[in-house]
Design a protein around this nucleic acid. Sequence first.
DNA 1: CGCACGTGGTTTTTT
DNA 2: ACCACGTGCG
Length: 733
Amino acid sequence: MNTTLLSGLNPPQLQAVTLPSQSALILAGAGSGKTRVLTTRIAYLISTGAVSPHEILAVTFTNKAAKEMITRLSAMLPINTRGMWIGTFHGLCNRLLRAHYREAALPQTFQILDSGDQLSAIKRVMKAQNVDDEKFPPREMQNFISGSKEQGLRAHDVEAFDPYTRRKVEVYAEYDAQCQREGVVDFSELLLRCYELLTRNTALREHYQERFKHILVDEFQDTNHLQYQWLKLLAGGGVTGSDVQRHTSSRQDRHSLFAVGDDDQSIYAFRGANVGNMKDLLRDFKVEAVIKLEQNYRSHGNILDAANALISNNRNRMGKNLWTQALGGEKLRVYEAPTDVEEAGFVVNEIRQLKSDGFKLAEIALLYRSNAQSRVLEHALVSAGLSYRVYGGLRFFERQEIKHALAYLRLMQNTDDDNALLRVINFPTRGIGARSIEQVQESAQMHGTTLWDAAARAGGKVSAFVGLIESLRSATAALPLPEIMDHVLVHSGLLEHYQNEKGAKKREAEERLENLKELVTAATLFVHENEDDSLTSFLTHASLEAGEHQAGDQEDALHLMTVHASKGLEFNAVFITGLEEGLFPHQNSQRVEGGLDEERRLMYVAITRARRRLYMSFAQRRMLNGQVSYGAPSAFLKELPEALLQWLSARAAPRNPFASFGYSSPVTPVQAPQQKEIAGAVWKTGQSVMHQKFGAGVVTGVEGRGNDGRVQVNFKHAGSKWLALEYAKLTAL
DNA sequence: CGCACGTGGTTTTTT
DNA sequence: ACCACGTGCG
């Protein structure tokens, strides 16, 4: 075998890579070479002849990670990675369902609903069922349905003891029926349908169990319940199943689940990720090999020490301590700004300095807790003439104009797709209004047909639309994908619609036209890169890979993104901004069990992105939701060892750990607090107060006086807050 | 039918 | 402050 494959691995990495066929859990800390271990493991298995490439199943969380793995693998081994099963849970399930669509009771060209499509589908069901969307917000319904599916529960499996839940279950059931009629599946359906297929169909299950001798999973801490069940099923159901005994000869090979993850970087519990899967894995698979990768190759010592100190405040960790051979390096720079705007100004100045120190802009990241925070930063960067890219946000295939174009294609291919029909029946506007559409829907309901059939029965403009779709279909039947795309854009009237846009919407329309052009380019690219260049395949690609807009990738630009989006990335210099109570940790995390711990892990992820230099900043007040809000410095700052920090702002670090640092000590009131005074009161610490929204609390800090001042109140239920006296309605108790 | 204005709600996000 | 959605008017 290729001996250079293993060179340069440290002992635990080597142990993980060369582990004999058995299940294992690799606890891989931030920057410990996780991806490298995973890919090298695959390369090792193949090059030793233990397995052939097609016997490997590798699961990642994002398409990007899957692509990265494939790229690295092709560089390591002279093999064709095309036939390999490397992908996301959803991508792999899709592949399996396409191969066995009949057994899965799906049409051959079934399409995939993204979250937006799913929401509109749910709204339609609710409307048809006369469900009050005040009592049952569609978004909540969506979470209920997706959540149930991710628990492996169909509508009839959900326990409903109250009328409220029963109603939701009814909608769930009808939603699934509607999807089935329309030949579409949502994201969680891909997984559940695949899981059920394998559970039900013994021959199929055994075929794949036999085939996938090695299953490898990345970011295992982010798996949800259903994903873990799916893995268990394919791995042979753990070691408890009786079928295991029947295959004693291949036993060694059958139960090799190689999971890599880091419980400290679990930041997606809010969307169903279950860290508990890590401990379950140890039990279910009788894992003997827990290998910890604790040597960090990324960050300087101080940065790592800070991260370790912070995360040590979390309970229920699997236990792991990152270390590095790198020296301490610089201290972590902390800055307190009066306002969010000045915080952004500080960031700009520092970036200028970094730039003249030889840092590339692309090596610098600006991180924040929530997307809304990027605005102020962007504004400052534009003024300073610094180029940047915002990551995340609206993705290419989720743009309105792209979804419209794709809806035409979907409808051409599957006329049962009511979602697609409703999206474009009157876009561009062709005189089919709400009333006409309602009539079509009623007709469909009455005759028990799809909207398409009902539309075909109708007359006038509606049936003209049916004719349009049919002519699009027949005209493009023999064309290659990019030409189909082009034809549809022209003859659907989409291009014309945007070309005719004038006035205020002109700019926006021009951008949309650009995107539509890019859609044709994307189709061309897709045809070149994929063996299966069918329309179905492209539409699937569009749903499953919403796709980053790739333009301007080579330009030297700053990276702006949420902390969530930064997971897995690294930068020479990192700014963590908006470190204020209520923002980071976020207010809403208080309401959730374990919420603060997840916020802390998020902070841990943020800190460990930095290689050499880390800035952390906060503002005394900032515009939030159109209002000025005051936040105390983040509690996380206090959890970092003082010795590792260098305060850049005028104000020094607190001497007293109990003081709310960064602020002056309470001002002595000039007059005694009065009963029942609303605004303009002078408060002193220790005073019990009542707030309309937050309830009862005690004043713990005062700054300024009269209407210009603000007070810190520790509320019994709502936690500690700074309140501007100008706005806050406080009453003395 | 289509547009203009008003209202409410705002953590994080991949597939 | 901003955006998405819904209602009411021309």
